[in-house]
């Protein structure tokens, strides 16, 4: 293992200290509870938006805290969901009377811990909490025989769009409905060229030969659905776009936000090359790209590879997407 770390056990807390040191203008970090707060939270009259999850997906979620996105993000250990105590503390801290929305990615651990937090919050009384679970990964069959589809790329788009709605002062039921609508209209699929190394484990989660790739991966270094021989980017783009397009399905005439995400270890030059392939495939299918996003936003440590997310949008979703955002990970218009 070759990493820029001091001690594998200190990676998460030292990275959070770094975020606090780098962004004192926008963030406040509760190091004990491992919660990244928007500096001016709670905002009176605004629905509080909280997300959280295992660390190792940076900039998600801490990097999406700030104006127009999240009010707080709870950081777990690497690839391990945070605990109910953190979510409880964050929920109380960002509630300004308008209630709180929990944005949860569909993983067994995340869902269980957020559920326990909601139960404890209900017992504690006071804060109105709603939850939305993202589950956009078409690589997983949503059936009785799996834990259901994973929440991946659409989580980033959802946090941006729903963050804009909350910033406008929309009430909790409306914000929660919007979140579900975004999730329902988003689909993703990812692939890996390499595995990644969890610092505490010290070695790669799986082995992948130089001429192999994993298709249908999630964001935790877990192996995917299929191991295939490495192929040109054009073919890989089709392997990702086709199952996404046919799943919703996205149809001729639809407008989408097209998001090509890097898994952490792939340079932007390759991500733009992939975006070019994705855009051509969408063009051929008669799908209009209303907005695009290219870069490393929901990562899996140093894994090389990418994911493709499509979100079907209307004018309202595009308007919310364009609204000002000022976070360490996404910033425009502000």
């Amino acid at each position: 293992m070759k990493k820029l770390i001091n001690d594998p056990g200190d990676v998460v807390s030292e990275a959070l200290q770094g975020m606090a040191a780098a962004h004192p203008d926008r963030l406040r970090v509760d190091l004990e509870n491992r919660i990244v707060y928007r500096k001016d939270a709670p905002r009176p009259g605004k629905v509080g938006l909280i997300s959280g999850g295992g660390s190792g997906h940076e900039p998600m979620h801490g990097g999406f805290v700030g104006l127009g996105m999240l009010d707080a993000a709870c950081a777990g250990e690497v690839f391990t969901s945070p605990v109910p105590d953190q979510m409880m503390a964050a929920t109380k801290a960002v509630d300004a009377g308008a209630g709180v929305l929990h944005i949860v990615k569909n993983y067994t651990g995340d869902v269980m811990n957020f559920e326990m937090a909601a139960e404890l919050a209900a017992a504690d009384a006071g804060t109105e909490v709603q939850s939305v679970v993202t589950n956009d990964d078409v690589a997983v069959q949503d059936s009785l025989y799996t834990a259901g589809r994973r929440g991946v790329g659409v989580t980033v788009l959802l946090e941006k769009i729903v963050g804009a709605a909350a910033e406008e002062g929309q009430p909790l039921p409306q914000v929660a409905d919007l979140a579900r609508r975004v999730n329902d209209n988003g689909r993703s699929m990812g692939m890996a060229l390499t595995s990644c190394t969890v610092p505490a484990a010290g070695k790669p989660t799986f082995d992948l030969a130089d001429n192999e790739m994993e298709v249908g991966i999630g964001i935790h270094g877990e192996p995917g659905r299929q191991r295939l021989p490495l192929a040109p980017a054009r073919e890989i783009a089709a392997m990702l776009v086709d199952p996404v397009v046919t799943d919703l399905p996205y149809q001729q005439g639809d407008s989408v936000i097209a998001f090509v995400n890097g898994m952490g270890g792939t340079p932007l030059i390759e991500l733009y090359l992939m975006y070019n392939e994705v855009a051509q495939l969408l063009d051929r299918a008669g799908i209009t790209v209303a907005r695009s996003l290219v870069g490393n936003y929901i990562t899996s440590l140093e894994m090389a590879g990418c994911s493709v997310t499509l979100l079907k949008v209307d004018d309202e979703l595009v308007r919310l997407w364009d609204a000002p955002v000022n976070t360490p990970g996404l910033r425009w218009g502000a």
Binding site: G54, G76, E77, T80, S81, P82, V83, P84, D85, T108, G109, M112, N113, E115, M116
Partner: peptide
């Protein structure tokens, strides 16, 4: 519950 996280913490 407070220290483990993941699924094994709640379980």
């Amino acid at each position: 519950v407070s220290k483990v996280g993941g699924a094994s913490g709640p379980l």
